[in-house]
């Protein structure tokens, strides 16, 4: 189930990306956070508790929304625009930390 609901600006072209091995689509101009939460109800598991996390401030201040790319780099989902072909993960890939950006 998705967490976010689109209410406006739906005429934008589509972007395809991968999240935890599943193919999802979003719209050009979406942040990674918007893109994932329009398809899922959370971004990642919490590292210090049993709950899940879905971002909190959406303005780059809380750092709750970091996700992994399959290559190992991390990104802040609320300030990073989604891009065609992105391959994202909710948890660290096996080989981390290769490189962080």
């Amino acid at each position: 189930m998705s967490r976010f609901v689109r209410l406006a600006e739906q005429e934008r072209p589509t972007v395809r990306f991968r999240f935890d091995g599943e193919d999802l689509s979003a719209l050009v101009g979406d942040t990674v956070l918007t893109a994932v939460l329009c398809a899922r109800d959370h971004l990642r598991p919490a590292e210090f508790g049993s709950e899940r996390r879905a971002g909190f401030c959406l303005m780059g201040a809380c750092q709750d929304c970091w996700l992994w790319q399959e290559g190992g780099a991390r990104l802040r989902a609320c300030t990073t625009p989604v891009a065609e072909g992105m391959r994202l993960r909710s948890t660290a890939p096996m080989s981390w930390p290769e490189r962080s950006e």
């Binding site: 689109r6 209410l7 101009g29 109800d41 959370h42 508790g49 996390r53 959406l58 303005m59």
Partner: peptide
């Protein structure tokens, strides 16, 4: 700390700059 809890500012940013509601 649950997923789906946001700041009020976040709710506004979601709508204003992404055209989405947080729920």
């Amino acid at each position: 700390q649950s997923a789906g809890v946001y700041s009020l500012g976040a709710a506004q940013i979601a709508l204003k700059s992404q055209g989405v509601a947080i729920g």
